[in-house]
Structures are given as C-alpha cells and as structure tokens.
Design a protein around this nucleic acid. Structure first.
Lengths: 236, 236
DNA sequence: CCAAAAGTGTTTGCTCTACACCCATGG
DNA sequence: CCATGGGTGTAGAGCAAACACTTTTGG
C-alpha cells in the first residue's frame, strides 16, 4: 500500500492485482463497496474525486482466491462471505500509470453484517454506494461493476445465491423483495412462494417477526441444499 | 520462447501467461490442441512425456485477448475463431518451476478448417487429442480442459455456439450429431429439428449434399441472429 | 374496528416429450 | 429393387402464469 500504486513491493507479483466487487443489501438497495482513488486525492481532507474497487496486489505465496478473501476480510471483517472469480481485465491502456492486469472477484455479504462499518477498522475510508448511484470511478471499474451486477442477476435465477444477501433468518416477503430488487421486476407473490418452497432450499423455523400488520414466519436457508440448485432454473 | 519456460524476455509480463483450449470437431470427435511440455522433452526426437495447453507470455503492449487471438492464429492459421475468456488459474504451486498465473481462454474452430495442420507452420509439434483420450498433462491443465468442456456444453444449451464447430454449410443431421457429441446424450430427431428451426438461427439454402441414401438439405447459420439467443434455453 | 402486511388454490395455456412411418437417391 | 440416411406430425403430460380474497396482528 503506497500512494502511487505504481510499484508494489518485490514480494508481490508485478503488473497484477486482485479487485473485489463487494455487494451488500443496505437501506433497501443493492450497494457496492468502494475506496478512494488515491492518485487524485493526496490531501486527506479533500473528498476524493474518483473511487475505485478495493483489492490488493498478489503476494508471491498466495493464491488469487486467498488474496481476494483477505481483501474482503480486511474490508468487512467477514471471512465466510460468498466469493467467486468474475473476469480478468487486461486491456493495455486501462490504467494510465502502468500496465495493470486485474483479476476481478465478486463477493456477497449478508444484510445486517455491516458492523465493521467501512470507514472503521482497516478499511481506510471505504464507503458503500448504491449500484444505481455510483460516483466517478477510475479505470474500467464501472464496466467491472456492471458485469458483476449482470452476473449476480444471472446467478440469482439459477442458483441459491440470493440467500447470501440476507441475514440468517428472513421472511418470504423479504426474500421476494430481494429478488425483485436485483432482477428489476415484480414477481407474483403466490408463484414466488410456491416455487421457492418447492425447490426445497429453505426451511421453515418457528420464529416470527412482528412489525406492522400480521407477523411473518421466518425461514432459513438449508445449507445442505447444494449451492447449484437441483432445478435448472429457479425463476423463468 | 525459450526452453526453460522460466524467464520470459523483459518485454513480457512476468509470472503471467495466456493459455488457449482450442476445440475442433475432427474424426467425429471433439478434439483439443496440445503442445509438448518442453521441460520433460529435451531431446527433440523423444516423444514428449507430458503435454500442455498452448499459449504465450503476454507482451507488455498487448491485451489478453489479442495475445490469445495470436496464439490461435499461430496454431491454426485462423484469425476469426470464436474466442472467450474462461478463467484465471493462480494457485501457488500449480507450476513447480515458478509462480505462474495463467489466464485461460477457450476457442472453437470450424470442422474442416484444419488445413494448417498442427505440426506444420509455426505450430511446433502441436497435436490434436480427443477430449476423451487426453495424454499426460502438465500442471493443472486437465482441470482447465475439463472446465472448458463444461463451459462448452453449457453454452451449447443456451447460445448459438454450436455453429462455430461446423463448416459454413451443414445438414441438420450433422448439427444434431454435433449437439449429441458435446452434450453426451441422444436427442430426438423431430424435436431437435423443430426447435432449432423455430429458434430462427439457421436458414435453409438450396444446396444439397449427396452421400449414401437421400441427399440432405444444407443449412447455414444466420449471422444476424445475435450470439446470445433470444430464447433463454435452446435445449432443456 | 381499521390499517397493514401475511398467507393461501385453481384454472388455463403453452411447451416439452414420446413416438413410427414415408421419401429420395445410389448402387 | 433394396439399402441408406433424410424428412415429417400429433396426442398427452407437466409446468408456468394469471388472478383475489381471507387471516393475523398492533394501534
């Protein structure tokens, strides 16, 4: 971590880093974690003029996935987050300072687990931004985030990744709202419930959550239901 | 290109290369292009004891995709082949000689376009191997090929990638055989034809191909039909 | 008792599947 | 005329989509 970002120390691989798109549901919106782009923000007091995806260079004795996991841990305090390789970006002029190849990962952390508020711990001044209102971004990171979002939407339809976004116990309405938010379309309540229950990937608990109106029964993700769902498509 | 494979010349990025899984339909089977693994094959006359995926280090002034395209061109003489990034492999001990990160691509070249027979031109002594009968492979390349094959199968179900494997004109039976070979299951002739025609991605020509039995009408891929097919699944 | 959110079934249309016979050509 | 592969339609089952009212709680 130097402030030029140009020459990582020799125990790191040159011209190569890992970047992570960390998704979280906050304030009813899908948000992404970003760090200030240091090149344009020398005075610490000034607000950064551009943001970037968090990440780190790759230690010579760490795999790509370990490196990404550590970035997520450093930023959020979570080690068990969902993490998947996204794509490797290597265009020649994507970074003005040097030839830089970034292996992008995307991560999902559950709603409510934002105790290590970014800005605290080792997260420097990382901040959450709604994916619909991103600030100015360095390099090709807007494209990276857009791709991560497409992939998230896609995985949501076919796999059980949706539960990664929610806390351990959740109501079916919360789950449905999550799906609607990410897919960007309304779903029929009865069809949604029937399908998600038939898929057998969540189980009823005897907890209830009160609020306004009738209390909702809470459900839990069944971890024994394999990640890649038996049914080919969860939502057609 | 040296024979240690350890230190690419300084105009290349260190610890990083591109590898390509090139698929082609030959002799009624899906085949992959491999090159001898030089570390284990110093005497040129000896048969290599292990094979590897072709590829090259990354010139400092070339993108990943350009590098992959040039590898395919050098190996097959084709510039327009289908090419897609697959995954980036970066485990610490995948290569015994050095820390090596490989950005894997997969490519598809049409059946019959094997004029620049591997072994000729600049392809050193590259050879085709049926994916079902791979020789001993260096590093994690068996895993890479297996993943490429999964991805090919997957893409075949959802996109129009199948036509990349066939020559410009083909009969519906040839197309069906291709699908069956890659999916590894028999398909019903009538259902196959109905669906593939309904999808509107191929068009009838007035060519016929004779052989034994009744001559077959030849079809052609409609390049205006976008790569990602309108229907969500081509084959359920 | 009223507002607010939770919960619950049925009908209809479409799509996938299974299945068997005739056609055109070359030898 | 016979062997070989090419070409064609239909009936039944299962799945997805559309749709409106009742239930439970808190204030």
């Amino acid at each position: 971590m130097n402030d030029t970002g140009i020459t990582p120390s020799p125990q790191f691989l040159a011209n190569l880093d890992v970047r992570v798109v960390v998704f979280c549901l906050r304030e009813e919106r899908l948000q992404v974690l970003l760090t200030p782009h240091l090149n344009l923000c020398d005075a610490e007091s000034m607000p950064p003029q551009a943001w970037e995806l968090p990440g780190s260079p790759i230690p010579i004795d760490q795999s790509l996935e370990e490196t990404a996991t550590e970035s997520v841990l450093r930023l959020t305090g979570l080690r068990e987050a969902f993490l998947e390789q996204l794509y490797t970006y290597g265009d020649v002029s994507r970074c003005p300072q040097q030839r830089l190849i970034s292996v992008a990962y995307f991560a999902i952390i559950p709603a409510g687990s934002t105790r290590p508020a970014p800005g605290g711990s080792a997260g420097f001044s990382a901040r959450w931004f709604p994916v619909e209102q991103l600030p100015a971004l360095a390099m090709d990171f807007r494209e990276v985030i857009a791709y991560a979002q497409r992939r998230l939407r896609y995985k949501l339809e076919y796999t059980a990744v949706g539960f990664q976004l929610l806390p351990e116990y959740f109501s079916l309405s919360e789950l449905q709202k999550t799906y609607e938010m990410i897919l960007g379309e309304k779903l029929d309540k009865r069809n949604f419930r029937r399908r998600i229950l038939q898929a057998g990937i969540i189980e009823e608990t005897n907890r209830l959550r009160g609020g306004e109106g009738r209390p909702a029964r809470l459900f839990r993700y069944r971890p024994d239901a394999v990640a890649e769902i038996r049914a080919r498509r969860l939502f057609p």
